[in-house]
């Protein structure tokens, strides 16, 4: 219960802070919107209709969830370091990885706002009718995808703790994940060597589940894989964070790297 309270309170606090940030709040809404607008125009130009347009709407709206997490998560611990709060997080009587869950989860939640905004934009500006065949399945898929992307963000945040310019790395991986996780392009259309990489990335399964629910197919198998991959990120992040924190304490480099 204490853990749930910690995650809940910290998530709400982080969400309020990020909502007031021009970079995390405003840009996370607008930037994927620019890409979604271009994509809607491309599909309209290609005379897409029906399921193809619905699939594009779902994929481009989900792009915002990842967009809100990629750069910000990579830079999250640098920000804590700049603000002088990294030491407090490391010294807190809770596992370091657990403290990062609400942080990256709040980023993904901002991404969910972006998703709703993009779906509305598609409906109002491009006349894309979003007929969801399985609304409950779709809603669960969105929630699980937000959680899974938050966990992936946590792994990125922890892995980039020693990298001063981590934001550049986070920014650089934004578009590759859009591409290889099948947000808009079917994974089967990508080169064969990319597909194993797609399979270990939780957004691939999350987006597939959303699309399945929207089209009236069962999303649950994809959701199972999404949860499994997200849980594995949590496990890996826990071990990596222990090692990183131990190394930083032993070498007294927490504030210096």
């Amino acid at each position: 219960m204490r853990t749930l309270r910690l995650v809940g309170v910290a998530w709400w606090l982080q969400l309020k802070m990020r909502s007031r940030s021009a970079f995390d709040g405003l840009l996370s809404l607008l930037y994927p919107g620019f890409f979604a607008t271009t994509i809607f125009m491309m599909f309209k130009q290609g005379d897409a209709a029906g399921p193809a347009l619905l699939s594009a709407a779902v994929g481009s709206s989900a792009m915002g969830i990842w967009s809100a997490v990629s750069t910000t998560a990579a830079f999250a611990l640098q920000m804590e370091r700049r603000q002088g709060t990294l030491e407090l997080l490391v010294l807190a009587p809770q596992p370091f990885a657990l403290l990062l869950v609400p942080l990256t989860l709040s980023m993904a939640t901002i991404g969910a706002y972006s998703m709703i905004a993009t779906l509305l934009w598609g409906r109002l500006a491009f006349g894309i009718h979003l007929t969801i065949a399985d609304p409950l399945g779709f809603l669960v898929a969105v929630v699980v995808t937000v959680f899974a992307i938050g966990m992936l963000g946590m792994l990125i945040a922890i892995s980039s703790i020693r990298y001063r310019f981590a934001w550049a790395l986070g920014s650089a991986i934004e578009m590759p994940v859009w591409l290889i996780c099948g947000f808009l392009v079917a994974v089967s259309d990508l080169p064969a060597w990319v597909r194993p990489l797609s399979a270990v990335l939780s957004p691939t399964w999350g987006v597939a589940a959303m699309r399945a629910a929207a089209n009236g197919q069962s999303p649950w198998a994809d959701l199972g894989w999404c949860v499994l991959t997200a849980a594995s990120y949590g496990l890996v992040a826990m071990f990596v964070s222990r090692w990183m924190v131990h190394s930083a304490r032993a070498h007294a480099t927490l504030a210096l790297s």
Partner: peptide
Amino acid sequence: PTFLLTPLFQIFLFVYIGRTAG
């Protein structure tokens, strides 16, 4: 990452989306 990789990723993203969009 910013000047060399991101432009290439952007090109690949839109080339593939273009193919999907017909």
